[in-house]
């Protein structure tokens, strides 16, 4: 992305979950479940709190009540502030998307995917 010092930039992070799977949402409502979480390393640009999409409340054969999940393709909106003191030129900020996925029959261990955003501050 290209941005100027003092800008606020919104970066949509598009996530696609494999067919037949769901991931626990950012607000699972159960203390034992692992929420979806996007985290960033420290960098020249400052991430704000991510805005997660609205979760789907879905019943599964294994759940007593409805579970708060995300499935298919969804977007997390991430704002970055470009400090007025940031140095000009190319850079990158890296982060991780932490998730825990299940099917209707089984669950995979919590895992994370690397996320990298390259930028050019002008």
């Amino acid at each position: 992305m290209a941005a100027r010092r003092g800008d606020s930039v919104t970066v949509p992070v598009t996530v696609t979950v494999a067919n037949g799977y769901h991931v626990t949402s950012a607000t699972p409502g159960d203390r034992y479940l692992k929420p979806l979480r996007l985290s960033w390393e420290k960098g020249s640009i400052s991430p704000e709190a991510p805005r997660y999409p609205k979760a789907v409340l879905r019943s599964y054969p294994f759940s007593e009540g409805k579970l708060s999940v995300l499935e298919g393709t969804f977007v997390i909106e991430q704002d970055f502030r470009i400090p007025t003191t940031a140095g000009q030129g190319f850079g990158a900020i890296t982060g991780k998307l932490h998730y825990q996925a299940c099917t209707e029959k089984e669950c995979l261990p919590p895992a994370s995917l690397p996320v990298r955003l390259s930028y050019d501050i002008r």
Binding site: M1, A3, R4, G6, D7, S8, V9, T10, V11, P12, V13, T14, V15, T16, V17, A18, G20, Y21, V23, L97, Y99, A101, T103, E106, L108, A111, L113, V115, L117
Partner: peptide, 18 residues
């Protein structure tokens, strides 16, 4: 302050192996 929209795609190819 300007607001920019940038597109970045991250694909979660999870669970395929099981």
């Amino acid at each position: 302050m300007r607001k920019l929209k940038i597109l970045m795609a991250t694909v979660l190819a999870i669970g395929l192996f099981s």
